[in-house]
């Protein structure tokens, strides 16, 4: 059974051409990679596309078998996510998403609210130093402290401290973002101020 096999064994099998081993690795790690990318992209379609790209990299250029695989995948995902944001792919995806939401949502108001909440989370993450944001996303994706230390190049003993700090900063940034919106409502077309 592949569930009992280590990443390293599966990687070795895949390197010998065993496609089933690759699929086992995909099933094992897809959720973590997708979570990281969703955190970065804030849009399901883009996160799914980037997750595909991440696993294509694994398919074409697998790391050495002794490499901690989940950490490797997350590192690839973080880089792809960052490049995608820089190249404006998120804006394109967002436009698409809004259009889809508007067309398909049963309740457009609820959909808009969800979309706004997601944007607040994204802005709060963007307000943090990159390492803090990455730490939050990777921890949320389920990486162990040892894996976090390896991906982020930090001492394993400092993960707890940095994580506590990142969570605090993230919540403050989120609340500030939400607060600013409450205090300064967007100008309404009718000139009425929303309660």
């Amino acid at each position: 059974m592949t569930e009992d096999e280590t990443d390293s064994t599966l990687l070795k099998r895949f390197r010998r051409g065993d496609e089933a081993a690759f699929e086992a690795l995909f099933v094992r790690h897809y959720a973590a990679v997708y979570r990281v990318l969703y955190g970065i992209a804030g849009a399901r379609e883009l996160a799914e596309d980037l997750a595909q790209e991440t696993f294509l990299k694994l398919y074409h250029r697998p790391p050495p078998a002794d490499h901690p695989l989940r950490a490797w995948l997350c590192r690839v995902a973080l880089n792809l996510g960052r490049n995608a944001l820089r190249s404006g792919r998120r804006d394109a995806a967002r436009t698409e998403r809004v259009a889809v939401n508007e067309a398909a949502a049963d309740d457009p108001a609820a959909a808009a609210e969800r979309s706004e909440a997601r944007d607040l989370v994204r802005s709060a993450l963007a307000a943090l130093p990159e390492r803090q944001a990455r730490l939050l996303l990777l921890r949320h994706a389920g990486l162990s402290y040892a894996e976090l230390a390896a991906v982020l190049d930090i001492a394993p003993g400092s993960v707890g401290t940095l994580l506590a700090r990142a969570e605090r900063a993230f919540i403050i940034a989120y609340e500030q973002g939400a607060g600013i919106r409450h205090e300064e409502p967007a100008p309404s077309l009718t000139g009425e101020v929303q309660p």
Partner: peptide, 12 residues
């Protein structure tokens, strides 16, 4: 923080 980062499920 975990609740804010909640991610919709994906179809593996």
């Amino acid at each position: 923080a975990a609740a804010l980062l909640d991610t919709p499920a994906s179809d593996i």
